[in-house]
Amino acid sequence: MNGTNGRYPPAERTRWGRVRGRTGMPAMSLAIPIGLVLAAAAGLITAAMTDAPSPLLTGFAVGAATIPAFVALVWVPIVDRDTLRGAIERPEESVEGAWYDRAAQGAFTDTLLVTGIATSALAITGARIDAVLALMGVLIVAMASCGIRYLIARRRD
């Protein structure tokens, strides 16, 4: 490790990083075996619960297909960002981070406004809609608003 700030110099950074803490262990040497075990467990659970003509084949397919996802799921929380080659030091202070913050703030306001208007309209008309549809509508408004606002902020800057 380098000096007092705990940062790794660029020469000591690796493509996949190292485990958090002072172990120095490559993050993938821990993420791969745990990910394989989790994928095998998912395959076994699928094989036990499926009603397919060949449950073992189905379980094997599910296990094989989920290996990358489970390895990534383990890798993300254990890797130390300071050990990754090419990682920016303070991503929250990037231009893209500022665009996202502005988009998320505006999307929150939009979501409150649209949800309030829709709730008022439903209360006045007495119309009833399914809760799943209502929640899907809220999510669509929030995601669309955030996405559009992000694109606008990116275009302006």
Rank of each mutant, 00 (worst) to 15 (best):
G106E: 01
A98V: 05
I148C: 00
V19T: 11
T125W: 07
W99R: 02
M28L: 15
E96V: 00
S54N: 09
P91Q: 04
D80V: 09
T58F: 09
D80A: 07
W99F: 10
P68M: 10
A61G: 08
S145M: 02
F60I: 15
A144T: 15
A65G: 10
P26W: 01
Q105D: 12
R81M: 04
W75N: 10
V95G: 03
M25F: 13
A107H: 08
G97T: 01
T4P: 06
N5D: 11
R81N: 03
I129F: 08
I34D: 04
T111Q: 01
T111S: 12
G6C: 07
P91D: 04
A11I: 04
A118E: 01
A104L: 10
D130H: 13
G147V: 02
G126W: 14
W99H: 15
G35K: 00
A11S: 04
A131Q: 12
M1E: 05
S94F: 03
A72R: 15
G137C: 10
Q105E: 13
G6K: 03
T4E: 02
D51F: 14
L122A: 13
D51E: 11
T14W: 09
L113V: 15
I78D: 07
G35M: 04
L56G: 09
P10I: 09
P26K: 00
V114P: 14
I117R: 08
I148N: 02
V114F: 13
L135R: 15
D157P: 05
S54T: 01
R90G: 02
G59R: 00
I78V: 03
A65L: 13
A142K: 07
V138I: 13
D130F: 14
E89P: 06
R85I: 02
A41E: 02
I152E: 00
V114R: 03
G137E: 06
C146S: 08
S120R: 06
I78F: 04
V79A: 04
E12G: 14
P77H: 03
R102W: 04
L73E: 00
L113C: 05
L38F: 01
G106Q: 12
A31H: 08
I34V: 11
M25R: 15
I32S: 03
N2C: 03
V74A: 00
T50Y: 10
